[in-house]
């Protein structure tokens, strides 16, 4: 336990020192601010640019547009950036051999993997919370009258999918030795999830539904309960992948 906490501290320190923490927070903060602003301003700018004589009637922007931006940016750019930043989570330590000394000081391999997952989870949670908070405040200010439905639950789904993806990434990192291999395997896992979605029956239980269905959620065209299966499976798989990562890493020759 002391080893786990010490290593977790080191991980957070490392992300701060290598500027990855800064990048993550700034990018998610920028998204958080631009989501509602773009939703509000884009129609107005386009409207003012239109030449005389031609009139395009732009539909009036709503809070729904701001949240559309939020989910689009956070799931696409946000998750991609997160995965890229974390892709070296193990490979850099293994290739350089920086873990050897700490392991010989009595740090357990389980603690290494769990601390690494905890750290990634903390950073992801902080990033998504920051992004959500800023979007929420701005949207509330810009579109005071509008309401969207199921917002907390859809953000929870997005967050959970991130946690699931980080578990996939961690397992990939343990299985492959390079950060590219890790990225490739994580990408392959996402593609596999998308392919599974072709089977209609699987859709309910597929973790990726957590991020593909959120528009329907905030529009209230999809029932919250329809995603319970996916929530359950994503949680279970994340748990399974982290446990597998621990078990495999314990038997790895360093």
């Amino acid at each position: 336990m002391t080893g786990y906490l010490a290593f977790l501290k080191k991980e957070i320190f490392e992300y701060a020192k290598t500027y990855k923490l800064l990048i993550l927070l700034v990018v998610f903060a920028v998204f958080g601010i631009t989501n509602p602003l773009v939703a509000k301003l884009l129609p107005e700018i386009l409207g003012s640019l239109v030449a005389d004589g031609i009139t395009i009637t732009m539909p009036k922007a709503t809070a729904y547009d701001a949240w559309t931006q939020f989910f689009k940016n956070a799931t696409q750019m946000g998750l991609i950036l997160t995965v890229i930043l974390f892709s070296g989570v193990l490979s850099s330590e293994l290739s350089k051999g920086t873990l050897v000394i700490l392991l010989t000081k009595g740090l357990s391999r389980t603690a290494v993997i769990l601390a690494k997952y905890t750290c990634m989870a903390l950073l992801w949670t902080a990033s998504i919370a920051l992004c959500f908070g800023l979007t929420y405040v701005y949207t509330h200010y810009l579109f005071p009258a509008d309401k969207v439905s199921n917002l907390p639950f859809s953000v929870f789904c997005l967050w959970l999918f991130g946690m699931f993806l980080l578990a996939v990434l961690l397992l990939s990192a343990v299985l492959t030795k390079s950060s590219y291999g890790c990225l490739l395997l994580t990408g392959a896992a996402v593609v596999a999830c998308l392919l599974v979605n072709i089977i209609p029956a699987a859709h309910r239980y597929n973790p990726i539904s957590l991020v593909t269905d959120k528009m329907g959620l905030i529009k209230n065209t999809i029932a919250v309960s329809s995603l319970f299966g996916a929530v359950f499976i994503a949680f279970l798989l994340a748990l399974l992948f982290v446990s597998l990562a621990v078990l495999i890493f314990r038997k790895k020759q360093l």
Binding site: V26, A29, V30
Partner: peptide
Amino acid sequence: MDLAMLREYLPLLIPLVILQFALGITA
């Protein structure tokens, strides 16, 4: 974008500008 609009949204844009500057200057 006309001036009135700019004046209206400037306070909202300031945090964005600060973030960009902070990141740029750190780098």
